[in-house]
Design a binder for these strands. Structure first.
Length: 234
DNA sequence: GCGACAG
DNA sequence: ATCTTGTCGC
């Protein structure tokens, strides 16, 4: 039996939920394992930031995942891995993690180095039950994670200032669950939230550093490109 | 009941 | 996510 704050990734995968009610129960059970008391790797740290993403082939029910490791300081690609699997859950808003995580874990396991930080497509704490994809992946792996999403989901925000680096709170009622972050001047912001073992200031700082040239972080762009190629040749 | 809804 | 041509702009 798992004690509070301790989970087994293998057990969680073996006990994968079969329906939406079970999935929500899993989220409620794992939510207390999220660690929000660590500030996380400092911007400019020596290590690797890993981007993960998945692509789908609905006709074949196939999912391909990619994990791409970048040097955290130079953003150079230093390692990459892919995995292919069967879709194990439908897309349901709020339950995205159950669709993506099994194959993402396979890809992460094929990296030659342990990531120091993982950047997910989607949300962490910015989630109806405060347990989005990034938080779920963080709890299962124990790694620091952040979520960078392209859309505000159900949350509200006022547009941040026009300059690169401007932010505004992403709000669920009065609670700040993440931040809208302008990564390029005059371009729609991205939506950053904490996953696990990092604070929101650093999550935004890493995202800004990774999005030096484009709206989306290089981690996301590289993983998106790789998982599409993996799906095409699968 | 109806609409909204990360990827 | 995915389906998809041209087109405006650097």
């Amino acid at each position: 039996m798992d004690t509070p704050g301790t989970i087994s990734c293998d057990d969680e995968l073996r006990h994968w939920p079969a329906d939406e009610d079970q999935a929500r129960a899993v989220q409620d059970r794992l939510r207390p394992c999220v660690r929000l008391d660590e500030s996380g790797p400092e911007p400019g740290f020596e290590g690797t930031v890993v981007g993960v993403d998945v692509a789908y082939d609905d006709a074949r029910d196939v999912v391909a995942a990619a994990a791409v490791a970048l040097d955290a300081r130079t953003r150079a690609v230093v390692d990459e891995a892919t995995a292919v699997g069967q879709v194990s859950f439908p897309y349901v808003p709020g339950l995205l993690a159950f669709r993506e995580i099994p194959t993402v874990l396979d890809a992460l396991a094929r990296l030659t180095r342990t990531p120091d930080l993982v950047v997910c497509d989607g949300y962490g704490l910015a989630h109806p039950r405060r347990f989005g994809l990034a938080s779920h992946l963080g709890v299962l792996t124990g790694l620091p994670t952040i979520g960078v999403a392209k859309n505000p989901f159900t949350f509200r925000y006022e547009p941040p200032g026009p300059d690169r680096g401007a932010t505004s709170p992403l709000l669920d009622g009065a609670e700040e669950v993440g931040r809208a972050l302008r990564t390029q001047k005059g371009v729609k912001p991205v939506f950053v939230s904490v996953g696990h073992r990092i604070d929101l200031d650093r999550a935004c700082a890493h995202t800004l550093h990774l999005a030096a040239d484009y709206r989306l972080p290089e981690t996301t762009r590289a993983a998106d490109s790789l998982c599409r190629r993996a799906l095409a040749s699968a």
